[in-house]
């Protein structure tokens, strides 16, 4: 079957030979968008978090066919206009919210969704929002700091 959706603002048409392909496999395979990572493959680690219609989903547990007609955003599409990093990405770099970096794309997508919903979330809310994104390196403290910083940067940008 034929799948049509919008990926990071670009209209995409691709074929799904079986019909039941996972969105993560289609993104990383034929569409060559490897920023989205596969960790556990079972919806537990959140490394594959992307936004579908602005909503956080695990791409490893989403059938590609289900995003027909939808707006999909991945880490590749986070920074407006290409090369520059988005506020969330800059904050993670500044605050050391990354070590090995494998969880970062999914983590940062969750932060985008969180800050779109609540521009100044308290710490408990930050931790709750990131419960589905596991990091084995940082111990999360720097990540929470990075989210606070990202919120600041976004508010500055909005001014």
């Amino acid at each position: 079957m034929e799948l049509n959706f919008t990926l990071n603002g670009v209209p995409i048409s691709c074929s799904l030979p079986r019909g039941s392909e996972l969105l993560l496999d289609v993104l990383r395979g034929p569409l060559e968008q490897t920023g989205t990572k596969e960790g556990c493959g079972k919806g537990e680690c959140g490394a594959c978090t992307i936004l579908v219609e602005g909503r956080m989903v695990n791409a490893c547990l989403t059938l590609a066919a289900e995003v027909e007609g939808c707006e999909v955003t991945t880490i590749e599409g986070l920074a407006a206009g290409g090369s520059e990093l988005a506020a969330e990405q800059r904050a993670f770099v500044e605050q050391g919210g990354i070590q090995c970096g494998f969880c970062s794309p999914g983590m940062i997508m969750s932060v985008r969704a969180l800050l779109d919903r609540d521009p100044d979330p308290p710490e408990a809310e930050i931790r709750r929002a990131l419960a589905g994104n596991l990091c084995r390196c940082t111990g999360y403290s720097q990540i929470v700091e990075a989210v606070r910083r990202a919120a600041e940067l976004r508010r500055e940008e909005a001014r």
């Binding site: 959140g46 989903v57 695990n58 969750s110 589905g132």
Partner: peptide, 11 residues
């Protein structure tokens, strides 16, 4: 409340 994660609750 606290069911799985934001990602899972959305699907």
């Amino acid at each position: 409340r606290d069911f799985a994660s934001v990602q899972i609750r959305g699907s």
